[in-house]
Amino acid sequence: MEPTVSFFSGFNVNDLWFLGEAALRTLWISMLSISIGTVLGVVCGWILYEGKLAATLTLAPFLDIFRSVPLIIQLVLFYNFAPIVGLNLDPFASGVVILSIYTAALVANVARGGIEAVGAPMRRAARSLGMTYWQDLRYVVFPIGGRAVFPAWVGVALGVMKDSALVSVLGYVELLKASQILITRTQEPFLILSIAGAFYFALSYPISRYSASLERRWAQ
């Protein structure tokens, strides 16, 4: 007997559009968090480098927390903490806040490594040429140190892009959440998960290959 009402319908072209939109949301939340997090992280890295003892006693343990607690726990905690202090954030905003801080915690170490990669003699030379401290940072440390840690930064950025999938626990419909919604309706997990995975792979693989080739070229 044919069922009169069909609960499940097959995968069709409109669903691809739905997935595409969700993929754009994944891109948007990761780009926003990576940008904010990188700026914050570079500042934190500089503070860690300059403010020796005070920073290692205060900022370093704080950033360490974000690296030692699973991101998913951080997200749930913050999402449920914000209303307690009177902030009404939607899942997107909470996700951006936590992902940014998470990125900053990872980038801070990278940035400090970059500053340390520029040798003291080079910096003394820059200062003795009459550069101010900020000119030294802008024209000597930033180009040389940035180049040294660029591949590491790309690794962090790609990691955050992939970890942005976790924002789905707050209910933000990004790529992985969208694919789950579709799986519930179409009952075709293999096909839909493959499409979602292919998107992440297509984004992450070329960038990581490019950064690896840059690293090799700069190493020569």
């Binding site: 970890d163 992440y200 992450s204």
Partner: peptide, 10 residues
């Protein structure tokens, strides 16, 4: 490459 370039959750 698959392990490194897709989310762990995926």
């Amino acid at each position: 490459e698959l392990a490194r370039n897709t989310p762990a959750l995926f």
